[in-house]
Simulated assay, not measured.
Amino acid sequence: MGEFFKLLKGGNKPSLIAAIVNTIIAALKAGAFFLTGNVAMFAEMMHSIGDAANQFFVFIGSALSKKAPTPRFPNGFGRLVNLVCLGAVLLVGILSYETIKEGWHHIQHPAASSGVAISLIVLGISIILEFAVLFKAGKEILHDVSIKGGLLAPLTTSFAHLNRAKPATKLVFMEDLVATAGGVLAFIAVLISHFTGFLQAEGIASILIGVMMFYVVGKVFLDNARGVLGETDEQMLVHLAHVVSENTNVKDIQELEVTKEGEFLHVKLVAEIDPTLTFAKVDDIHDALKELILNQQGVTDVTIAFDEDDGIRTWTTHRDKQTILKTHD
Rank of each mutant, 00 (worst) to 15 (best):
D310H: 06
H105G: 15
T36M: 10
G227Y: 02
A32I: 06
K260P: 03
L86H: 02
L292F: 13
F159S: 06
G262L: 02
Q200C: 13
P69W: 07
A30I: 15
G203A: 10
G203T: 06
S114I: 13
P275W: 07
T169F: 03
V184I: 13
S158T: 02
I49L: 09
T36I: 10
V172P: 02
K321M: 11
N82S: 08
K281V: 11
G2C: 06
K139A: 10
N12A: 13
G93H: 00
L237W: 06
E261G: 12
L90C: 13
S119T: 13
M236N: 06
S62N: 02
F4P: 01
L222I: 06
A179T: 09
F159A: 09
K260S: 08
E263M: 07
Q108Y: 09
A117E: 15
K67P: 09
E263N: 10
G76S: 08
P275G: 03
E175D: 14
S193D: 08
F187N: 07
A160M: 15
S48V: 06
A30H: 09
L8C: 04
K148L: 06
I127S: 05
G197H: 05
A32V: 11
F173V: 06
E263Q: 14
A68T: 13
T232D: 09
E98L: 12
V84H: 00
S245H: 12
S206Q: 07
H161V: 07
P74V: 05
G210F: 01
K219A: 10
R313C: 12
N75W: 15
S146A: 15
N295C: 13
L237C: 09
G124N: 04
A305F: 14
D144Y: 01
F5C: 04
I207Q: 05
V21N: 05
L90D: 01
V145K: 00
I49E: 03
N75C: 11
K101V: 13
A137R: 00
E308M: 10
K67M: 13
L199I: 09
M212S: 05
A271N: 11
G87T: 01
F33C: 05
G103D: 07
D283M: 13
G76W: 01
V267E: 07
E231Q: 14
S113Y: 10
V190P: 04
A201P: 07
G150M: 01
A179W: 05
E140N: 11
S96Y: 03
L152C: 05
M213I: 04
A111G: 12
